Structure formats: structure tokens, C-alpha cells
Amino acid sequence: MSKGIKIVTIGGGSSYTPELVEGFIKRYEELPVSELWLVDIEAGREKLEIVGNLAKRMIEKAGLPIDVHLTLDRKAALKGADFVTTQFRVGLLDARAKDERIPLSHGVLGQETNGPGGLFKGLRTIPVILDIVKDIKELCPDAWLVNFTNPAGMVTEAVLRYTDHKKIVGLCNVPIGIEMGVAKLLDVDHSRIRIDFAGLNHMVYGLDVYLDGVSVKDRVIELLTSPENSSFVKNVEGQGWEPEFIRALNALTCPYHLYYYKSDEMLEKELKNFKAGTTRAEVVKKLEEELFELYKDTNLAIKPPQLE
């Protein structure tokens, strides 16, 4: 029998980690993970312990032979890894607040993947991902790097341009979120839906939608023209799309398009939040604190529904 798969997650103390662990549990037959190493830095030690212990309880409840290791030593974790996933935030949520607040203080959109805020985050993050790749080249050169760190496009492109490590995939949950949203809209199982996407990560268009292999784009666009159905991803609150716009575009939009097609409205909304002290960073910080209080519960052995 072949040895199991070793996966290293950098930024393992993230509040999103239980979702990742749930994914590994559900797909164990296809992806037989034997070792999961959760890596963080000193500033994230407490969160790593909390979320790491929840991960161990989840795996124990599932009855799977996956060993979970918690460490602050990235190099020790990377040795012999098959896959490395990255989900870290340089400067933590306090830095995100600056990414949003500095542009807004100048009357410009502040957002963690677009505009000046996205560039700030990219400038902090790219040197770190390049350091990680150096370690990968030394300790696990055959490993695939799966990047989930924003700004995903910039970070992934930096690795492809400025290192010789080409085994990298940049991921974002927007496209899969759109697919799941369409499945919900049509009241069918997600496995029956396929979408042809053009673009990348936070800038994707759905060019066609298939239900059981048959195009249903026109039907979906009609459903989408009702305002309550116009945004699939909950972490971007939009203004909704005008039905005429969606019909004229003749494609599915993603929520991040609001920052481009409706810049004035989005800026107005974000400035209002900024003045009230409730930028997205503050909202996420509060949510994260609530999640970690839940994660501390030693009786909890599943991904809590609040993470959705």
C-alpha cells in the first residue's frame, strides 16, 4: 500500500481551517491524507492551538487515520510535503483595516483585493510567498503549492514570474460560489451544474451555464434579474444589478464586478461604513472573535454552521 499524502497548511491558525479540514474528511477516499501540518507564526500561536485542537477533534470524530501536527517551524513542516496550501494574512486583520481605511480616508475605494488596498496587501504578501517558495524548493521540490492567499492573482503570478517553481495553482472561492448559487437558484444538486468561466479569481464571467450538459443560461439570467438573486457571494455586499445590465452583458457577473461597474455606489457605501467605523476588517474581526470562542468548546467536533 502506498504511503498517504502529506499536506502542509501555512496560516493554519486561520478561522477558515475547519472548512479545509471538513473538505479533507469528506474527500478522504479520493485524497487519502495521512499527515496534516498546520503552520503559523508566533503571533498566531494561540489561534493555531485552538483551531488545531478542533481539527484533531473533527478527524477523531470522523474516525480517520490523519495525524495533525501544529508547529511554528515552517521548515520542519515542509520536509517531504506533497501539497502546500497557503492562507495567511501578513499583518493580520489590523493590516487589513489599514488597507481599507487609508484609501477611504482619501476618498478612494478601500478593498483587500482591488485598488490601492489590494496593492498594499500584495506588496506585504509577495515577499513572504517568495520566501515560502525558497523553502519548498529546498525541502519538497515536487510539492504542488495551492495558494488561497489574497490578492490571489497577484500572489500566484509573482510565483510564476519570479521563481522557477511552476507547480502552483491560485484559488478563489468566487467561481465555485457562483456555481453553488446557480444550483440553489435552480433548486438542483450542485453536481448537475457546470459553468464556462472566463477570467480569473475575482474577475470572472460565466459565459454559459449547463444543467445536465444542456445550456440554461437564458433561464438563469432571467432568474438573476430579480434583485434578491443578483449576488452569490455573501462577503461582498452589493447594490444589486439592473436587469437591463445583466441582459445586455449576457453573462453571469461575480460580486467583485460591483467595484468596477458600480464604483460610485460602492465608494459611497464604503465611505458611509468607514465614517461609522465598520469597514469589512472590523466586521471580520468581530466575526473571527466569535468563531474562536466557539472553537474553544472541547465538545465541538464539527465545522460550526456560523463559519458559512
Score class of each variant (00 low, 15 high):
Glu100Asp: 06
Val159Ser: 09
His190Trp: 05
Ala183Met: 10
Met203Asp: 08
Val90Ser: 07
Arg101His: 01
Leu72Ile: 12
Val146Gly: 06
Thr71Asp: 05
Leu70Asn: 07
Lys47Asp: 13
Val220Leu: 04
Asp212Glu: 02
Lys285Gln: 15
Ile246Cys: 10
Thr225Met: 14
Leu145Val: 13
Glu308Arg: 15
Lys303Thr: 15
Val146Met: 14
Ala281Phe: 04
Leu249Ala: 15
Lys6Tyr: 00
Pro141Ile: 03
Glu222Thr: 14
Gly277Ser: 05
Gly44Arg: 10
Lys47Glu: 14
Thr278Lys: 14
Thr163Gln: 10
Ile246Leu: 15
Thr253Tyr: 13
Leu72Ala: 08
Leu78His: 09
Glu49Ala: 12
Val159Met: 07
Asp212Asn: 11
Glu308Leu: 13
Pro116Tyr: 05
Asn150Tyr: 11
Ile25Glu: 03
Ala143His: 02
Asp164His: 13
Arg89Pro: 00
Glu308Thr: 15
Asn150Lys: 06
His165Gly: 08
Phe88Ile: 02
Gly277Cys: 06
Glu35Phe: 01
Lys166Glu: 09
Glu179Gly: 06
Glu35Ile: 02
Phe245Ala: 02
Val159Cys: 09
Glu138His: 08
Lys137Pro: 01
Gly177Glu: 00
Val146Arg: 09
Ser230Asp: 01
Met266Phe: 01
Ala158Lys: 03
Glu228Tyr: 01
Val236Lys: 04
Arg57Trp: 04
Arg96Val: 14
Thr85Leu: 14
Met266Leu: 01
Pro305Lys: 11
Gly213Trp: 00
Ile302His: 12
Lys121Asp: 11
Val90Trp: 02
Asn173Val: 05
Gly117Trp: 06
Pro141Gln: 10
Arg27His: 09
Arg194Trp: 02
Arg96Pro: 00
Ala251Glu: 06
Lys6Asn: 12
Ile246Arg: 05
Pro151Ala: 07
Thr163Ile: 11
Asn53Leu: 04
Val284Ala: 11
Gly91Pro: 08
Pro255Glu: 02
Thr85Ile: 09
Asp297Glu: 06
Tyr16Ser: 14
Gly213Ile: 02
Gly12Trp: 04
Lys98Ile: 04
Leu258Glu: 02
Asp196Phe: 08
Thr125Tyr: 07
Glu49Cys: 07
Glu288His: 09
Leu271Thr: 03
Ser2Arg: 12
Ile129Trp: 05
Arg89Cys: 12
Glu46His: 12
Ile66Lys: 04
Cys254Lys: 11
Trp37Pro: 00
Glu42Met: 05
Gly177Tyr: 02
Leu72Arg: 08
Leu171Tyr: 09
Asn147Leu: 04
Gln239Thr: 13
Pro227Trp: 00
Trp144Leu: 14
His202Thr: 07
Thr86Met: 12
